[in-house]
Design a protein around this nucleic acid. Structure first.
Lengths: 215, 215
DNA sequence: GTCACTAATGGACGATCGTCCATTAAATGT
DNA sequence: ACATTTAATGGACGATCGTCCATTAGTGAC
């Protein structure tokens, strides 16, 4: 599968549009993420990235000005892709019940599209070096994003409808995200025995406890 | 504080017992963990570790046989220290109520002894490279340890006492650990605004939802 | 005091790191 | 068609990587 990708790349470069800076930029970012997922961020070097992308070693400096900048852009793009997919999978039923909207977020986060070997490895690799790479740290948090507002709003609405303490919504939001973080860790630690359904059921159970009668 | 440690080390070597292989081993492991917490695991090299420990560059190969082995032993020791501290902080009241025992685990995990800048940075650094370092992966999980049994037993007892579904205990255990994982991530992401009390209260709230009338 | 033994040193080694740039190739403008 | 501009190459560069080992220094036995 990997060598197939490489061949496709090379062929495109031989016959199609022969110079495409933007495509090469993207190719380098993708190669970076793939390399991190494959051999770990410690062994992800400029040479290895270029090798995988099929481009020459000078390209990174040309397009990004250095390895660190490339890493930062890769983290940014990876984060953006996560949220784009999350939006795509949850925006569909906007006028559904708060429970459904919340569980849609949970389900999306636990789905194979978002939670897979590649993404968990990359995600945790970036988080692991975030404390020493300020540029990357900006993209290794779930906490300051639209996603929080989505959940918060849904929980508020749910609480309002059923007469629960309004400030419960904040804890519910924060707790839901924390539970999901924990599930990702479980998945990373043991992909074999991880159950998406089990993880979803667990979170539903916790939320059902917080909002009795719902979920 | 750091140069002070170094001086102390040097002085000990000058006047006290002048050759102490085991002490140097420990010194190297400590220097490794400190370096990871300080400059990140990417920049943690043999030279940097030796520099910090005040020992010569050959020591790592002499005592551990290579950098990877040292890293693995450091991860192992770090993990062991975590569980030792956890035991120390929770074994005190063995015959107390299940709720208290559970919240003791939560409180310990959120206490400054276990949850601090150094430990979170090291923990996440190791986890970030775990997928590509099988030796380290063994020590980057909370899931296969005595701690699980402690919680499981307490939740079972709690369920029994109050007439709850016994299989709730497994979800409660797994969820509690997941929530704690999430709290560690929150702490790593934003140490300034993190509140230990808030985090503890949130978890208590979730558990109170699962076991109404308790917590 | 001498000898055997182990701990510890610090530099040599080849490999690889990330950066940079002179050169080549392709696209664009005239 | 040729000149100009931009994309892309691939090797040179010094620095640093991790490993290894000949050497030195400290320790204990006799």
């Amino acid at each position: 599968m990997e060598s197939l990708k490489k061949d496709k790349t090379l062929k495109e470069r031989k016959r199609g549009v022969r110079r495409d800076p933007e495509a090469n930029r993207q190719l380098l970012i993708k190669a970076t993420l793939d390399t991190i997922a494959d051999i770990g961020i410690t062994d992800t070097s400029v040479s290895r990235i270029c090798e995988r992308s099929g481009l020459s070693r000078g390209m990174i400096h040309l397009h990004f000005g250095g390895k660190d900048k490339l890493l930062t852009e890769a983290a940014q793009q990876f984060s953006a892709e996560y949220y784009a997919e999350m939006d795509r999978m949850t925006d569909l039923g906007l006028h559904s019940s708060p429970e459904d909207r919340i569980m849609a977020v949970v389900g999306a986060d636990l789905s194979e599209v978002l939670l897979n070997p590649r993404s968990t490895k990359i995600w945790h690799a970036f988080r692991g070096i975030a404390s020493s790479h300020p540029g990357i740290a900006r993209y290794s948090s779930t906490q300051d994003h639209k996603l929080v507002d989505t959940l918060l709003e849904a929980f508020r609405e749910l609480g309002e409808q059923n007469g629960y303490d309004p400030d419960l919504a904040e804890d519910a939001t924060s707790g839901t995200l924390a539970l999901l973080e924990g599930m990702w860790v479980n998945y990373l630690t043991d992909m074999q025995s991880f159950s998406r359904e089990g993880a979803g059921a667990l979170i539903r159970r916790f939320l059902g406890g917080l909002y009795p009668g719902c979920f």
